[in-house]
Simulated assay, not measured.
Amino acid sequence: MSPLAEAARARLPVLRAAHPGQFRVLTVARLGMALALAAMAALFAFGVWRLDIQWARIWPGLGQVGGFLLEMLPPAEARGASLPGVLRALAETLAIAFLGTLGAALLALPLGFLAARNTTLSQVLRFLCRRGLDGLRGVDALIWALIWVSVVGLGPFAGLLAIMVNDTGTFGKLFSEAIEGADRRPQEGVVAAGGNGLHRVRFGVLPQVLPVMAGQVLYMFESNVRSSTIIGIVGAGGIGLVLAEMIRTLEWQAVSLIVLLILLMVAAIDAISARLRRRMIGATPGA
C-alpha cells in the first residue's frame, strides 16, 4: 500500500467521528432514493403489463425493415418526386420553419416580459399570460396543423401558423424564465442613476437576455425544420406531403432520396446554428 493510501486510511477514524452521518450505511436520503427507484421500476413494469407490450413481436418485423432498406437502395427520383421538385419542397419546408419561428419569437417577446415576475405590469396579468402560454404550447404542432388546415386549407400557410402558435407558447415560457434569471445588479444601477421602470428593462434586462433568447430561437429553428417535415404529412405543405405520397405509392427509392436530402439539410442547419450560438455566447456580457 502506498504512503498516501496509508495516511488516508489512518485518518478514516477521525473522519468517521467528525462526520458520522456521511458514513452511515442507511440514511433518510438514501432510503428515499431507493424507494423512488423501486417505485419507478414498479411503474415501468406495470405499464409494460397494462399496455400488453411484447418485446418478442419486434423480431419478426426486423426482416421486413431489412427488406425496406434494400428496396430504398440506391436513392433515385420517381414520378412526382423529381430532384428539382424535391428541392423546391425542401425550400418550402425551410421557409415554413423560418417564418414560423421568427413570427413566434416576435409575438413571444412582449409576452415573455408580461409573464416574467420582475417585469410584469401586474400579477393578475402575469397569471393570465402564463396560463395562455401553457395552453398554446400544451397542444402539439401536429394538432395545430390539423386545426389550421381546416381553417385556411391545405398548403404551407397552415404549417406556418401551426409552428407559430405552438412556438409562441414555448418561447413565451423560455423568454420569461430568462428575464426572471437576469442579474439584478445592472437593473439596480440603472434605477440608482435615475432611470424609471422602462429604462430598467431596456438597459438593465434586455442586454442580458437578448443573446440567450437568440440562442433559444436558433435551437427552435433547428427543431422546427424537422417538425415542419412531419406536419407536411397532414397537408400543411413542404416536403412532408411529397414524402407521404411516395410512401403511399411504395416508391422506396424516392423515399430514401427525400430522407437523405432532409438529413443533409438538418445537418447543415445544425452546424450553422451551433456556430452562431457559440459566437453569441462568447459575445454575452460577462461571459
Rank of each mutant, 00 (worst) to 15 (best):
F68S: 12
L106E: 05
S273H: 06
L142M: 13
A178C: 06
R137N: 02
R24D: 07
I147R: 04
G80S: 09
R279Q: 14
Q123I: 08
L15H: 08
A8H: 09
G204D: 09
G32R: 14
F171C: 03
A145I: 07
A105E: 05
E92A: 10
G195F: 04
F98A: 15
R130S: 12
G63F: 12
L154D: 00
L276R: 08
A115C: 02
A45C: 01
V65I: 14
G85S: 13
V259M: 14
L218S: 11
R88T: 15
G235W: 01
A274C: 06
A192K: 01
R185D: 14
A81G: 11
R248V: 06
L73W: 14
G32F: 06
P186C: 03
S82R: 08
V205N: 06
G235A: 01
L260F: 09
R88H: 11
L128R: 05
L51F: 15
A178L: 05
L12D: 11
L125H: 03
W144M: 11
M72P: 07
L263C: 13
A95G: 05
G138S: 11
V225N: 02
A182L: 03
Q208V: 09
A254D: 12
A105L: 12
R88Y: 09
V86N: 10
R277Q: 12
S150A: 14
A95V: 10
R57D: 14
G132S: 08
I53H: 10
A254P: 12
L37D: 03
S176Y: 00
V191L: 14
A116W: 00
A254S: 11
M246R: 15
L241T: 15
A182Y: 05
G181I: 02
F113T: 00
L206Q: 07
I231F: 00
A10I: 01
N166E: 11
L206Y: 05
T249L: 11
I239N: 00
R11T: 04
L4D: 09
A18E: 13
L174I: 15
A116S: 10
G135V: 13
A97K: 04
A271G: 09
G172S: 05
G66R: 02
A89P: 03
P3W: 01
G240M: 02
H199N: 14
R202Y: 09
G32H: 06
V165G: 03
S273N: 10
R248S: 15
L161C: 13
G21F: 04
P84G: 07
G138V: 06
A283C: 07
P84A: 09
S122E: 00
A192L: 09
A283I: 07
N118Y: 00
L210D: 04
M33D: 09
L51N: 14
V217S: 03
V152D: 12
G66Y: 05
I147V: 15
V149A: 00
R11S: 14
A244V: 00
L260I: 04
